[in-house]
Design a protein around this nucleic acid. Sequence first.
RNA 1: UGGGGGAUAGUUCAACGGCAGAACAGCGGACUCUGACUCCGUUAAUCUAGGUUCGAAUCCUAGUCCCCCAGCCA
Length: 560
Amino acid sequence: MRAADTATREPGHDFIRDIVQDDLASGRHKTVVTRFPPEPNGYLHIGHAKSICLNFGIAREFGGRCHLRFDDTNPTKEEQEYIDAIERDVRWLGFDWGKHLYHASDYFETLYGWAEHLIKAGKAYVDDQSQEEMRANRGTLIEPGRNSPFRDRSVKANLDLFRRMRAGEFPNGARVLRAKIDMGSGNINMRDPVLYRILHASHPRTGDKWCVYPSYDFAHGQSDAIEHITHSICTLEFEDHRPLYDWFIENLPVPSRPRQYEFARLNMTYTVLSKRVLTLLVRDGHVSGWDDPRMPTIAGLRRRGVPPAAIRDFVRRVGVAKANSTVDYGMFEFSVREALNRTARRRMAVLRPLKVVIENYPEGQVEELEAVNNPEDESAGTREIRFSRELWIERDDFMENPPKKFFRLSPQKEVRLRYAYFLTCREAIKNAAGEVVELRCTYDPATRGGNAPPDGRKVQATLHWVSAADAVDAEVRLYDQLFAKPDPDAANFAADLNPNSLEVLAGCKLEPALVAGNSSDPVQFERQGYFCPDRDSTPGRPVFNRTVGLRDTWAKVSAR
RNA sequence: UGGGGGAUAGUUCAACGGCAGAACAGCGGACUCUGACUCCGUUAAUCUAGGUUCGAAUCCUAGUCCCCCAGCCA
């Protein structure tokens, strides 16, 4: 596991870490053992990252270990692709399960034996009711259920039927194995929950060996016990499964007694973290795939250029508690910018180009000017950038009739070209439609390198630019929120999709250093944001993704 | 009308009977060859009503509001 990136900060504690600490201090446990238990039926998202950081983080902080365990009890929904993606994403986030990679399916034989154990103890029975009958007899939230007519079968009959279920004698849905607990319980999970169902389906790991599969409830706690998990940490919706979790631990000859603790799952504004919805977004083509840079999946964030350290930092800031909450997306962006600011090389790129011709700059002359790679990191060094008579600047950096607070270029106004010269706009040339298509400007040779001239003249703005003769054309993809509303409706998510979540810019002008070396590292386009090369790039056509924009005070001021 | 949880600045999280604090967001300023970064300042909260106590966010009582549970999903 990688060293804490937050070493200089408070260690950070929460009610779960408090419990772990107490259990260690009191001697209840010698070491802490946690687990991250994904079901391989989709890709991991930022909500899972919270659980991953919690479980692996606790193991690291308290000198214990954390298992990666696939909760693969439903072969009708699970696929090898997801298994591979999950392993890749957990590793990428910076965590390592060592040799502790497990699957609930590793325990199918043991689990099956424990089911027979329950039958022999008179605590489980085979139920022949149809799904509809079971539902009808389960009662409601306020009315108790009714016992199944098959509830009092003999142990012998139950054993025989259950073994024939396993042998494949019955079709899907014909019978289930149920625990005999209490159909009158106020907790619906205790109303004779299903332990095994018949599923004639091929499993990614066990193939066709089984046609009965344990339910989540019958597999999870027992898997924890087999692995000697000390603290089984899950989300709030499993809180009322805990009595059932404990019931199995108490009624089965399990090798250890894990305990379950629940915390509130992560929610973010403008974001849906529901595997069902994410799956539909992919399936119905609303996004290009699980790793579409607009997706809140780990794979999407990675392609977007978000560093794993930013995700860890975000999760740490959000904290762990039991109250349902929705985190402001801005808090995530803050963590992303903070991580990138320290590490990203600075480069210049013009996204929406406007031609500048410097009338007093000699035709054919080219100069090499020195530029800093990262002001936050001197060891990143410097690079040379070429300057010439014709340049590209950002369209947004020129206004013919600027408002009062506009510091950038306008007719007769002087600005600095970053690392180059002071530049004054002399004339804006328009096309027939009245659009500005070119700026005629002059420069001051006394300001070489961007330094203030001897007369002490100052300038209000510094613009980025790219030499036209040297610029590399590129495609740049700008992303906005996938959803237009801060609280999208998961039940009808398509209606809340942001139609402008992707903006593709062609003909962007890059400084050549951006395509030299073929690096996949994140970069800052100065004054604009953090970007990273996309895997769609080809040698002739680089493609960049905007990870996140820079904080933009001007945009806020100009909007008022 | 059942069972299980939860309510502290706009947001997220602390405070574990003893001065309600942080981060993000906001606002104002300083600095600046990125309207970035950084720095400084600042606005802003204990769900309600009672009670116990020298003292209550914290303990007790009664309410209010919010979330989860009726898959052979996890």
